[in-house]
Simulated scan of single mutants.
Amino acid sequence: MGERWQAVDDYIAGKLLGADGALAAALVNNGAQGLPPIDVSPAQGKMLFLLAQVAGAKRILEIGTLGGYSTIWLARALPDGGELVTLELETHHALVARENLENAGVSGKVDIRVGPAADSLAAMTGEAPFDFVFIDADEQNNAHYVEEAIRLGRPGTTLIVDNVVREGGVLDAASDDERIIGTRALFDMLSTDARLDATAVQTVGAKKWDGFVLARVR
C-alpha cells in the first residue's frame, strides 16, 4: 500500500506542481548535510502555500525550520513586503536553511531565530500579529505552541499543526511516547478552547499515514 501512496503523490506532483529546481536542491542539500528526511511532501508544501495565500497572510510564523523546505513554500506565498519568522532549535539546521533560502531567492523575507522555540516565542512581544502559523516541531509541546500562536495572532489567524495522527498512535491513551502524549494533549486543548475553531484531517502518501490540524482564531 505504501508504494501506491508514494505513486499517487508522485502523480499529483507531476500533474499539479511540476519541476522546481530550488526546492529539489534544498532536499538534496538537506540530505548531504545530514538532516533527517522529515520535510513535508511537495504536495503538502503546495497546500501550505495555497492556504497562506487564501488567508491573505502578510506575516507568517513557522515553528520548526529544519532545512527550510516548507519555509520556501511559505515565503513564496507572501506578498511584497511580507515577512516570515521561523524558529529552529539546531544551529546546524538553521545554517543549512539559510543556504537553501538564499538559493531559492527568498532569504530577504525570512527571519530565522535559533534556540528552543518556547524561549523564542516567550521573547516575542510587541510584534505585529501573525496571519498564518505553521507548527511542525517537537510534538510534546504542540499545545503550548498553539497557545503562543493565539497570543501572537489575531482573530482570523490560521493555524496548521502537522503530524497529529502518527499512523494511528494518537488513539493510544496508554502510550509512553512523548510525541503521542503531546499530540493527545493538543486535541484535549482544541476540544475545549473557545478561542479556536478546529478540525483535523488524516493524510496518506509519501509521508505514510499521518495528518494535520487546521484551526482558526475566533
Rank of each mutant, 00 (worst) to 15 (best):
R59V: 10
D177M: 02
F187P: 06
A215W: 13
P79G: 02
K58I: 01
P42N: 09
L101Y: 10
A26E: 03
S107G: 01
F134C: 10
K207W: 02
L171C: 14
D177T: 03
N30W: 01
M47A: 15
A75C: 08
D136R: 04
L87D: 06
V106N: 07
K15N: 08
G182E: 10
G211A: 11
L61K: 10
G56S: 02
D9T: 06
G67C: 04
M1P: 09
N29W: 00
L196V: 14
V106T: 04
S107I: 11
L27R: 15
D197Y: 06
R4G: 00
G81V: 02
D138T: 00
P116F: 00
L214C: 08
Q33H: 15
Y11D: 03
Q202C: 05
T199W: 05
E178P: 01
Y145N: 10
H92M: 04
W209H: 14
I150M: 15
I72W: 07
K109C: 03
I112H: 09
R4N: 03
A173Y: 03
Q44V: 07
D188W: 02
I160R: 06
P116K: 12
D176S: 14
F132R: 13
Q53H: 01
T157K: 11
N163V: 08
D172E: 15
A43R: 02
A173K: 14
A174N: 14
P36N: 07
V165G: 06
D39C: 01
L196G: 11
A174V: 12
I72C: 08
T71E: 04
A174I: 02
G153N: 12
R98T: 07
D138R: 10
G31W: 00
T71G: 15
G169L: 14
G108Q: 10
L17P: 03
L50S: 05
E3N: 11
A137G: 06
I150W: 13
A215F: 13
G18P: 11
V164E: 02
E127C: 14
G64I: 05
P155G: 05
D188H: 11
F134G: 09
P36W: 01
V213H: 09
A143Q: 14
A32Y: 01
A26P: 07
A128K: 15
L74Q: 12
V146S: 11
L190D: 05
N30V: 01
A32R: 15
G168V: 08
A137F: 05
L159A: 11
A75S: 13
L61W: 11
E62G: 06
A19G: 01
E62W: 06
G105Q: 10
G168R: 05
D111P: 00
I160S: 09
D138V: 00
A77C: 04
G18Q: 08
R4M: 12
F132L: 13
I135Q: 09
F212I: 07
L51K: 08
E3P: 00
D177I: 06
A123I: 00
Y69F: 15
W209P: 01
Y11C: 04
V146T: 13
L171H: 10
V161W: 11
M1S: 13
G82N: 03
R195V: 14
D80C: 00
E167S: 15
V28P: 00
R4C: 00
T86Q: 08
L35R: 04
H92P: 02
R184S: 08
E147W: 03
A26I: 03
G14P: 04
D188Y: 02
D136Q: 06
A117C: 04
G2A: 02
V110S: 06
N163K: 05
T158C: 12
A185V: 03
A215N: 12
L190K: 01
D177P: 00
V133E: 11
